[in-house]
Computed example of a mutant assay.
Amino acid sequence: MDFSQIKMVVTDMDGTLLNSKHQVSPRFFEIFAALQQKNIQFVAASGRQYHSIVDKLSPIKEDILVIAENGALVKEKEHELLVTPIQQHLKDELLGIIEEIEGAHAMLCGKYNAYFDEKSASFLGDLKEYYSNYEIHKNLRDVTDQIIKIAVYHNKNAEAHIYPALKDLEHLLKVKVSGLYWVDLNHSDAHKGYALDKLMKDHGLASHEVMVFGDYNNDLEMLELSDYSFAMANAHPNVKKVAKYETASNDDYGVERILEQLV
């Protein structure tokens, strides 16, 4: 493959750049320095909260673009480039539907703060990995912050236990299985593809100038924008169908292997 025209690298975090222990490898940070020398822009694109993403990429956070909350928030340093909240009138309706799903736990995601209810406290250890800034409320309907995503957690399998109850809402908003335990609800325009398309237009980039990595269904739209789209070996079957290429797993340096070829 000819990578000579690549000017931007975009990668998902969990299951992609992060290994199974939720770690970024030292190998990646070494490659990042080489990307900078080649003036190749790096974009971290995740369903995670903004603060959680930059915590993982703390050494380089001043030198990257961040697509957070599945594209509902896009930032460069302290500058907000895009914010796409859920319509306020939908919040309580969605919470009511989620409360009827056995084993489901809803998290409201503001731009910089997440909100859990007291019923989720038993899962707090798991949730803090993805939401480093949070508050616990007795009733999520009392939260007045602007909400840009509702994340729904199931401790066994979100695709099997949560998605069937929410998929009929896809005419109203984005319903994405974003991981083994998660289904995410966003505004219809709040997805990684919409956010990446804006960045590509802002930077004057075409599909052959962007390289994208992903592993789950919330990565599909951004993978479709690139001529150099890579599914991880551990990716969901839907991702492998859409991506043009495949790389090794997130535990076998799949992203780093391709970036080493790039630099």
Rank of each mutant, 00 (worst) to 15 (best):
H89I: 14
L82A: 10
M107C: 04
I101C: 01
A158F: 04
K156L: 14
N139C: 01
K149Q: 07
D55K: 12
H89M: 10
L124Q: 15
L127F: 13
G110H: 06
I147Q: 11
S132L: 05
L95C: 00
L57M: 09
K91A: 03
N155M: 05
S58A: 07
V83F: 03
F116H: 05
F116S: 02
A72V: 09
L65F: 12
D145Y: 08
I148E: 10
G125K: 09
G71P: 00
E76W: 10
N139R: 07
H51N: 10
I147K: 03
H79A: 10
K138L: 09
E69M: 00
S52Q: 03
L124E: 13
Y115M: 03
L65M: 12
G110Y: 12
Y134W: 04
K128V: 04
T144Q: 10
E76A: 04
N139L: 00
L65W: 09
D126P: 03
L73W: 11
D63M: 14
I53R: 08
F123C: 01
D126T: 11
Q146I: 14
D126Q: 09
V74T: 08
N157D: 15
I147E: 13
N133Q: 01
H137A: 06
L73H: 11
T144E: 15
A72R: 13
A72C: 11
T84H: 13
A158E: 12
Y153D: 07
K111D: 15
I86W: 08
E100V: 05
E129I: 15
L82T: 07
Y153H: 02
I98F: 02
V74G: 15
K149F: 01
E78G: 04
M107F: 01
A68N: 05
A158G: 07
I64V: 15
L95W: 04
V74L: 08
D92E: 13
P85C: 13
L124F: 03
L73T: 08
T84R: 14
L81G: 05
L57V: 05
A72W: 09
D117H: 01
K77S: 10
Y134R: 01
G96S: 03
N139S: 09
K56I: 09
D92A: 14
K91S: 11
V83N: 02
D142I: 02
E80T: 15
P85R: 06
Y115W: 01
Q87R: 13
F116T: 08
L73G: 03
S120F: 10
E100Q: 14
E159Y: 07
I136H: 07
L82I: 14
R141A: 09
K91P: 04
V54W: 08
S120R: 07
L108G: 06
I53C: 09
A104L: 04
A121L: 04
A114K: 02
N113F: 09
A68Y: 06
S52G: 12
L90C: 11
I136R: 03
E69G: 00
P59V: 01
V66Q: 06
N139K: 02
E129M: 06
E93S: 00
K138W: 02
K119L: 03
K138A: 11
I136S: 10
N70S: 08
K149E: 02
I60C: 12
Y131P: 02
M107S: 00
K91E: 09
K111P: 12
L90D: 14
A104I: 01
G71Q: 00
A72G: 15
A114Q: 10
R141S: 15
L108H: 04
N70Q: 11
A106P: 14
